Computed example of a mutant assay.
Amino acid sequence: MSLDVSTPDAPTIDGEREDQYEPDGAKRSDLQEYLDGEENAWEEGFSEWAAETPLSEESYRIILELGLLDRLDFFWDAETEEVRYESPEIGDGWLNLHPSLDSWSAVSEINEELDDLGETVAGVLTDYYVAWEAEKEVTKTFGDQYNGRDDALSENERDRDE
């Protein structure tokens, strides 16, 4: 199944996240450029998601009217070395949120599809756009031969170490 709609504007993700340990403003700014720049990772990820989603146009309209796409957040996770995301959810107060929301299953489907959209776009960003690498130091705890550098040792050095 697919959703035949035009691609909306990418969410704005500039600014600091409340739960971040280190400032990642530069990376968030770069992610924003990837999302809505010339290469347009948002359009690529959204199109991929729209081609596979079972979401109805009515449910998609609800997402737009509630501004949920604008609340998607993307950020760089240096620990996992990938783009992560947070998707908004419709909570327990859904009965009074929108007149077209008529069941918990409709709310659950919207929440699940927003999560799938976030995952798809984050994957596109990680796989095709982001080229940051964590700066890790290689420690030589046991010497060259234990750090995969046997080939860098001369034959005399290898024989001497044995």
Rank of each mutant, 00 (worst) to 15 (best):
V124S: 00
D30A: 14
L114S: 09
D150A: 08
A78Y: 07
P99Q: 09
N147E: 13
D102N: 07
F75R: 12
E109T: 14
V107E: 04
E137I: 04
P23W: 07
E137L: 08
K136M: 06
S2T: 13
S105Q: 13
N111V: 09
E52P: 01
R17V: 09
K140D: 07
E58P: 00
I62E: 01
L35M: 02
E44H: 06
V138Q: 14
P88W: 10
E38N: 05
A50Y: 03
E16I: 11
L117F: 11
V5A: 04
Q32T: 06
E82H: 05
R158T: 08
K27W: 05
Q32G: 05
K27V: 11
N96K: 09
W94L: 04
S47Q: 13
E112A: 10
K136T: 09
P23I: 08
G123Q: 01
I63Y: 05
L64I: 13
L64F: 05
Y85W: 08
Q145H: 11
V107G: 04
R17D: 03
S29M: 03
D4W: 13
E38W: 04
N40M: 02
N40C: 02
E113P: 00
A152C: 01
P8S: 11
D30N: 12
L125Q: 02
D102E: 13
Y60W: 15
E79N: 05
P23E: 15
E112Q: 14
S2G: 14
E22L: 14
T139Q: 11
